[in-house]
Design a protein around this nucleic acid. Structure first.
Lengths: 128, 128
DNA sequence: GCAATATACCTTGCAGTGCTATGTATATTG
DNA sequence: CAATATACATAGCACTGCAAGGTATATTGC
């Protein structure tokens, strides 16, 4: 049985929640990272980590890239690297660009609704 | 085999994504709905629907309420209704209030990071 | 009285998703 | 030629939401 997380502490429900929140956003995040330029797998992880503080595992990334490609939102191509293992670069298809835009719009209205729900909490008023 | 959604259309991947996005936020939404007042089950659904455009099924709500209670974030009590079936009212424990606050803070910083990622897309600049 | 309806709570089984762990391939370094 | 670094890939597990179906209580129409 597995009871410890990587840092050796007991898994806490707070951690689980944060993971859960990330979950729903990963596809959008990955598509969005490709908005401006082609990237290869591990590079996507680095970009998301550095630009948006979003950390995901390789075992999470590759299946998602596969799904997105199968849906026709991404294309990919192998490219010989100057050194080491060849890299598989991904970029958005026209359908993919359309999709990112509509997802981003949905995200915006969704979070706006949510912010309304959280306003009483973050404005410092006590609940009863 | 099941191929149709409730409205009779084919299930689209966009729908799946929207569902996925909601998923990570439900616990926070439910806890937040209880910030100001005690509510009973179905009432929570109505509040979230009307105030935040957030629709969830009963089969989703009750298990979550059970989890949250088990974690010590909620308390509950049966109350005779003026008419019909008795209602089970829920409210936040002190630990629950603490938790909502920390979740709301995490939400705020998380969405801020994300908005940065989406800015190039929503500002109307074309990708290449 | 008693079926039909409305309100409310609860549970079961399934499907979708991310993550840990592990595996493979290529090239460089000691 | 082992060890290391980079990169892509997959299998099995655990968690979560949801559709569907079930139970309980009270009111309404006949």
């Amino acid at each position: 049985m597995k009871l410890l997380t990587r840092n050796g502490s007991k898994p806490e429900t707070t951690d689980k929640w944060e993971a859960q929140l990330r979950k729903g956003c990963l596809e959008l995040a990955i598509l969005a990272s490709l908005w401006q330029e082609k990237l290869y797998g591990l590079e996507i992880l680095r970009v998301l980590h550095q630009n948006s503080n979003l950390v995901l595992a390789e075992g999470t990334l590759y299946p998602i890239l596969g799904r997105l490609k199968e849906e026709g939102l991404l294309e990919s191509e192998w490219v010989e690297a100057e050194a080491g293992h060849p890299r598989k670069y991904y970029w958005l298809t026209p359908a993919g660009k359309q999709r990112v835009i509509s997802m981003a719009r949905f995200w915006t209205s969704f979070t706006a609704n949510f912010d309304g729900l959280l306003k009483p909490i973050l404005s410092g008023k006590a609940g009863r």
